[in-house]
């Protein structure tokens, strides 16, 4: 399969993008609703909720911001916290840049807006497997973004009417993360890197409050993975490391 095998008409781009994106959307709805309900209780109007979702588009930092607003924190403190929580996108943006070479900078700037934990992992897998292109990836970004913004606003409008914890929907994001992780385990070497990251993240998350453990553990594990890959190239080449 080459990168250019996918048909280029708008309808098939949209269809492929939506087909790939729906599990992410399913995961966003309960979290978006929950965020909307919390934000509404903190005194934000549906319009204000939609504005934040549109401008920030990063779930966990939005939850933290609303909680901080509730405690009367200042703008600078909330913005600084948001920065540290969302710093992990630096790593994702770097990793996905490999597949967006030579693209016009205007398109890159648009694509950057939609990089989330979920869209990043999904698009990366699709790019790697082939039959995927920038436009399909951008569709995934924007469809999931639309679901996020809409579900947070709906949560703010009347999310309290929707029963919490219905149908195990709280687990949708975890289910998605687990499958996206499976896609990344393309050999024992990636399994090892994942294990190092997981162990480091657990230890760091208990030792250090906040969310800095995500970036720290990822950097530690990727570096350890690289060193091991360099040290034992033969073991790691056994199962398609590329």
């Amino acid at each position: 399969m080459s990168d250019h095998a996918a048909p280029a008409d708008k309808a098939s781009i949209l269809r492929d993008g939506i087909r790939a994106a729906w599990p992410i959307c399913l995961g966003y709805v309960p979290i978006g609703l929950a965020f909307g309900v919390l934000a509404q209780k903190a005194g934000l109007s549906p319009l204000a909720i939609g504005l934040m979702s549109l401008l920030v588009f990063a779930g966990s930092s939005q939850f933290i911001a609303v909680a901080m607003l509730g405690t009367g924190a200042g703008i600078a403190a909330i913005v600084a916290t948001t920065f540290t929580v969302n710093l992990r996108h630096l790593l994702m943006s770097s990793a996905i840049s490999v597949y967006l070479k030579g693209l016009h900078r205007r398109w890159l700037s648009l694509f950057a807006y939609g990089i989330t934990d979920e869209s990043f992992a999904l698009n990366l897998v699709r790019f790697r497997e082939g039959n995927w292109d920038f436009k399909r990836a951008l569709t995934v970004n924007h469809v999931t973004n639309a679901f996020w913004v809409a579900s947070t606003v709906i949560g703010g409008l009347g999310g309290a009417l929707i029963p919490a914890h219905a149908f195990g929907i709280d687990y949708a994001l975890m289910g998605m993360f687990l499958c996206l992780l499976v896609y990344q385990l393309r050999g024992r070497f990636y399994v090892l890197t994942g294990l190092i990251a997981g162990a480091a993240a657990v230890i760091l998350s208990i030792a250090i409050p906040g969310n800095s453990y995500i970036v720290m553990a990822s950097v530690i594990a990727a570096t350890a993975g690289l060193l091991i890959r360099r040290r034992y190239p033969r073991i790691t080449r056994q199962r398609g490391s590329r």
């Binding site: 770097s94 993360f177 990344q184 994942g194 950097v219 993975g225």
Partner: peptide, 12 residues
Amino acid sequence: MIPAAILSALIL
């Protein structure tokens, strides 16, 4: 290595 690392760091 980053995707496997980040997802594990989020999940575990």
